[in-house]
Design a protein around this nucleic acid. Structure first.
Lengths: 343, 343
DNA sequence: TCCAGCAGTGCTAACGTTAGCACAACGGCA
DNA sequence: TGCCGTTGTGCTAACGTTAGCACTGCTGGA
């Protein structure tokens, strides 16, 4: 690797002069600057960031710690972050935790050793105490999920309200046997979504046991398939289903397609998220649309500002809207399809 | 940040001893090692990788440079890479090029400055000469697309064969007016896929102008919608359509759904890739399934081996199978649906 | 008794870059 | 002529870590 020393030797200058010429220091003559830049370019010089960091410069890397990049939820976030940060000269480190606290810890250890400038994290259900300790030593921002012992900086969706609205929509259509299928309550988002579902039922004046809630092990496509299969086999099967995760939604849709369940005739369905295929699934999936892009952009901008200015302006919690319910054909009054189909 | 010096001062030792204790040097007494480790843990010491790198250690970061992480093609690759590398203690840097050679160049400059251990890249159509120069200074591996002036290490799909098979399938069903909708020929993959389409037509004994090929600007969902709309409005509209990109496929499916085109009655369709929604689209989408996961794993293993051993064992090109055609309901003889539906 | 060998530790330099200070050469002004 | 400020450059130290070498006691054999 070419260093400033190599350039200095070739031009008969000192490393200081070369360094200053490359950083466009006003004390260096234009002629010298030109010669240095010329030589640097010819020799393919690329500054060593590790050495700069040792002189106190901070790294230009921000890490994104998420469960699984294949989840389009997270890939959208990664994309928005990357785009916004590239413009500012920052790089994105990707850490997949697989929702495993030990993997999360191993990643955070590495990130800490690399002295990343900041971390944007979707924490696991119960992060290891060392993870918490490590995170506290670096600028960090929680995304979607919020763990109490971490910093108060958080960006996310109003999960409770989102599920309340989705459930309320089904109640308005006249459903009284509604099931909810969501992720584990151990996750803050899982708990919030369940609570949104329950509060809608209460507001609708339904008895506590009217709504069935099936909460999962870590959300997965397979779990969605199995859960909906069990649900439909029960004697008093629900007439409507609300979902609380993208992965579960994907599984449920596949299973319903395969089994040929009539939607919304036999079952009304409200999905979670708005993936490419949701609009063309069966009669079109009514779903909870989330403002992922806005959230990710907000996240990126917050982090960029945080890294450029002093950490004094730490505001309180930040949250974005609960998104909006995207109405398509998969929801109707119980039993019958809608009298006059919309759209 | 805590350094070895801080630990040394607290214990009344020298930095050398502390450093050696932490790296489990055999010359240090067990008692000292214990005390050092204890103190390090208490004080929250995390080694500074930048300093280690200055002493010749290589970084533990491998970069993945891809057009867009939102494309599930690439997010699957990122996931597999991340998973395989985490096990070996490597981190993944994500660089989105947006298929823009200048963005690609900016990223490569940063990666070079960070002294990443290696780069796995899906190059843009015509990388900047500086990009080529930079890549040559680091261990790199081309993915999917292959640029001639870069190293010979490549992992990818047999695009030509994949499209040849897909087209042959339509020919076997009796179609004679087949359209191909793919990405720009400037991309090696675009050219290969088009060539596969054409060669199938030739083998089928069709005249050169039998197959219409519509090649796009950078593949996008919108372009897919518009292109298929134009195609169907033409006087001598094709009876079958083969697609050459995931994004285009998504756009085409949306448009066909909206317009209510009867598939496979009016039009037979073969998609590209196998996304979650493809199986439940209309009659089920016949599509070109790609062995993305295997490819990504192979890629990760190659890079890990390359970084651990001397770069002597550089084999020649590596390629994986062209995948397999997933037969579903969207293809049938021209005009009529299949007599006896499979499955 | 003397020295070799060993265990355990410290000193120092080096990695590449940058910032503070020093210094040389020069022109202008009193 | 002497002094000062300016311009352009060099010297040196520092960042945190590690590896080579040196040093100090101590044990054991000749």
């Amino acid at each position: 690797m070419i260093t400033t020393k190599d350039i200095a030797e070739r031009l008969g200058l000192s490393v200081s002069t070369v360094g200053r010429a490359l950083s466009d220091d006003s004390r260096i003559s234009e002629e010298t600057k030109f010669r240095v830049r010329q030589a640097a370019s010819e020799m393919g010089y690329v500054g060593n960031r590790a050495a700069r960091m040792m002189r106190g410069a901070s790294s230009n890397v921000v890490a994104l710690a998420i469960p699984d990049i294949r989840n389009s939820f997270y890939s959208t976030i990664a994309h928005e972050l990357s785009k916004n940060m590239e413009a500012e000269g920052y790089q994105l480190m990707l850490s997949e935790t697989d929702d495993d606290r030990m993997v999360e810890l191993r990643h955070l250890r590495e990130l800490s050793a690399t002295r990343v400038a900041g971390v944007i994290i979707v924490p696991t259900a119960r992060p290891h105490s060392d993870s918490v300790r490590l995170l506290r030593t670096m600028p960090h921002l929680q995304l979607l999920r919020r763990h109490p012992s971490l910093g108060s900086q958080w960006f996310g969706v109003d999960d409770r309200e989102a599920l309340r609205r989705a459930t309320a929509h089904l109640l308005e259509l006249g459903h009284t046997r509604i099931a909810y299928l969501g992720g584990p309550v151990e996750l803050p988002t899982g708990a919030d979504r369940l609570e949104g579902f329950r509060s809608a039922l209460r507001e609708g004046g339904l008895p506590d046991d009217a709504g069935r809630a099936e909460l999962g092990p870590p959300s997965s496509v397979d779990h969605g398939r199995q859960a909906v299969r069990r649900l439909l086999e029960e004697p008093d099967a629900p007439t409507a289903l609300v979902l609380g995760s993208i992965q579960l939604t994907l599984g449920v849709l596949e299973e319903l397609s395969e089994q040929g369940v009539r939607v919304p005739g036999e079952l009304s369905v409200v999905g979670f998220g708005d993936e490419p295929g949701f609009s063309w699934w069966g009669p079109g999936l009514t779903t909870i649309g989330l403002p992922i892009q806005e959230m990710a952009t907000g996240c990126a901008l917050w982090m960029m500002r945080r890294l450029k200015t002093e950490p004094s302006n730490d505001g309180p919690y930040t949250s974005v809207s609960p998104g909006s319910l995207v109405l398509r054909g998969s929801t109707a009054p119980p039993g019958g399809p809608v009298p006059s189909r919309p759209h």
